[in-house]
Design a protein around this nucleic acid. Structure first.
Length: 419
DNA sequence: TGTCCACTGGAAGGGAGGGCTT
DNA sequence: AAGCCCTCCCTTCCAGTGGACA
C-alpha cells in the first residue's frame, strides 16, 4: 500500500456519517413507537375504537386539525395497535379490519368502494377492477365481503373533504347506512380533514351519522415540535451530528407555520441531507436556512413539472405577460397570449371556460395569485400574477422539451435574457 | 338608479379511454 | 361484437355579478 492510497481512503472512512442507517425515520410518514404530545388524543380515540375489539361497532368519528398536527400518524398508530391487540390476545379480542384510504389519491365513489372491497380479496383474479363495474355492483360486493365475517371493519378516510368536494357525499351516504343491511359484519368510519367547513356540504343525515364523535387536533407549539424532532433525531442521526441550535431553529420555523410537524421534520431531514452532501461533519443552522430554500424550490418544481401541457401554456402566458411589464394580467389577456402560443405551436387551443378552470387550479396550487376584481364598466375578472419567482418557473418550464422550444423561439419584440 | 362590461362558475352533456358482461 | 359502466377532460350554454359610469 502506498501512502497515497491510504490517505485516499482515510478521507472517506474518517468522515463520521450524519445519518444512522434508516433516514426514513425523519420522514413524516414514519410512525414511531410513541407519539409525543398526542397522548390525550390517542387515549380518547382508543377508548372509542376499543369497542371494535369486543366485536361491537364503534361510533363514527370525524377528526379535524391543520396539516402536520399528527392526525394521520395517530390513526395509523392506532391501526397498528388495534391489530397487534388482536394478534397478541387471540380469542379474547375479535379481529378488526383496518382500512386506510387517502382520498386525495382515491377521490371517486367507485374508487373508495373498490378499495374497501379489495381489502378482503386476496386472489388477484377476483379483485374488483379499477373500472368497468357499475357502482352498485361494487357496493354489493363490498357489503358481502364485510358481512362474510363477524368482525368490525374500520375505514379511515384521510382528507375526506377532497372526496366530498370532488365526488359528493353519495359514497358516505351508502357507507354510513350499510350497517342496516349487514347481518354479522359491522362498519365504522373515521374521517380526517383539515377543513372544518366541508361538513356543510354533506346531506344532514350523513353529517349526523358521520359526526357521531368529533375531535380537533390542536397545532403543536415550538417546544412540542422540538420534542418531536429530538425523538426522531436520536433515532435517525448519529450523536453529535447536529449543532444544538438546529432543532430549535427547525421547530421555530415550523411553529411560525401553524405548528406543522411535517414541515419541521422535512426541514430537519433536508438540512441533514444537505450537510451530508457537503461532506460536513455536523448539521449546522446554515444548512437549515439552505433547506428552507430547497424545500420551496422542490415544491415549485414538483408542481410545475407535472402540470399537463395546456396548464403549462397558461402558466407560460402569465409569465410572458408579467415579463413584459404588467404587474398582473386579466383572464382575457392571459387567454389571448395563450391562444397565440397555441397558434405558434400548431396546437388546438382550449375554450376560455376551460382556461378559467386551469387558472383556478394554478391558483389553488399556489403557483399564481388570482384575485377576483371588478373594474366597474371595465367588467369583472381575475387579477392574475405569479406567486413564485419568474426565473424559477421559467427554469422548470424549460425542462419540458415542447415548452422549451416555445420559450426560446418566441418571436416577441421584447425577447430578453430574462427567460 | 339603471346600464353595461368582462367575465365567473354552475349545469349538462359529449366523447375518448379504460374495462366488464353477455 | 355489442352493450354497458365509470372517469376524465373538455365544450356549450347561460344566469349571475361587482362596481364604474352616465
Amino acid at each position: 500500500m502506498t501512502e497515497e492510497s491510504t490517505s485516499l481512503f482515510e478521507k472517506y472512512t474518517d468522515i463520521r456519517p450524519i445519518f444512522k442507517k434508516d433516514r426514513d425515520i425523519l420522514r413524516p410518514s414514519y410512525i414511531p413507537e410513541n407519539l409525543p404530545h398526542r397522548r390525550k388524543q390517542i387515549e380518547s380515540l382508543a377508548s372509542i375504537l376499543a369497542t371494535a375489539l369486543q366485536g361491537s361497532r364503534p361510533s363514527n368519528i370525524l377528526i379535524f386539525g391543520k396539516t402536520g398536527t399528527g392526525k394521520t400518524a395517530v390513526m395509523k398508530y392506532l391501526g397498528k395497535e388495534i391489530k397487534a391487540a388482536h394478534t397478541t390476545n387471540e380469542g379474547r379480542f375479535s379481529a378488526v379490519n383496518f382500512i386506510y384510504i387517502n382520498c386525495e389519491i382515491v377521490d371517486t365513489q367507485y374508487g373508495v368502494l373498490a378499495h374497501v372491497g379489495n381489502y378482503f380479496i386476496q386472489d388477484w383474479d377476483e379483485r374488483i377492477p379499477f373500472t368497468g363495474w357499475s357502482t352498485e355492483k361494487v357496493y354489493n360486493q363490498l357489503r358481502e365481503q364485510i358481512d362474510a365475517r363477524e368482525e368490525v371493519t374500520l375505514i379511515v378516510l384521510d382528507e375526506i373533504d377532497k372526496l366530498v368536494y370532488k365526488s359528493g357525499d353519495d359514497v358516505l351516504f351508502h357507507l354510513t347506512e350499510i350497517n342496516a343491511d349487514l347481518h354479522q359484519g359491522k362498519l365504522s368510519i373515521v374521517g380526517i380533514s383539515n377543513d372544518l367547513k366541508f361538513t356543510e356540504f354533506l346531506d344532514t343525515r350523513v353529517r349526523s351519522r358521520l359526526g357521531e364523535e368529533r375531535m380537533v387536533f390542536p397545532p403543536y407549539n415550538a417546544n412540542q415540535l422540538q420534542d418531536i424532532l429530538r425523538q426522531r433525531a436520536e433515532l435517525a442521526l448519529n450523536d453529535d451530528a447536529i449543532d444544538p441550535g438546529v432543532i430549535s431553529l427547525c421547530a421555530a420555523l415550523a411553529a411560525q407555520e401553524h405548528g406543522d410537524a411535517r414541515r419541521a421534520l422535512d426541514l430537519l431531514r433536508v438540512s441533514a441531507e444537505l450537510a451530508e452532501r457537503d461532506h460536513a461533519t455536523r448539521v449546522t443552522e446554515h444548512f437549515v436556512h439552505k433547506a428552507v430554500n430547497k424545500l420551496e424550490l422542490d415544491a415549485v418544481e414538483e408542481v410545475v413539472s407535472t402540470l399537463p401541457t395546456h396548464s403549462k401554456l397558461v402558466l407560460l402566458s402569465i409569465l410572458i405577460n408579467e415579463r413584459e411589464g404588467s404587474l398582473y394580467s386579466t383572464t382575457g389577456e392571459v387567454y389571448d397570449t395563450y391562444r397565440e402560443l397555441c397558434r405558434q405551436h400548431g396546437m388546438n387551443h382550449l375554450t376560455q371556460r376551460r382556461v378559467t378552470d386551469l387558472i383556478s387550479e394554478l391558483d389553488m396550487l399556489g403557483i399564481i395569485n388570482a384575485r377576483l376584481k371588478s373594474f366597474g364598466r371595465g367588467g369583472r375578472t381575475r387579477e392574475i400574477s405569479l406567486a413564485v419567482s419568474l426565473y424559477e418557473i421559467a427554469d422548470v418550464l424549460r425542462q419540458d422539451e415542447q415548452i422549451k422550444d416555445l420559450i426560446d423561439s418566441r418571436p416577441h419584440q421584447n425577447q430578453t435574457k430574462l427567460l
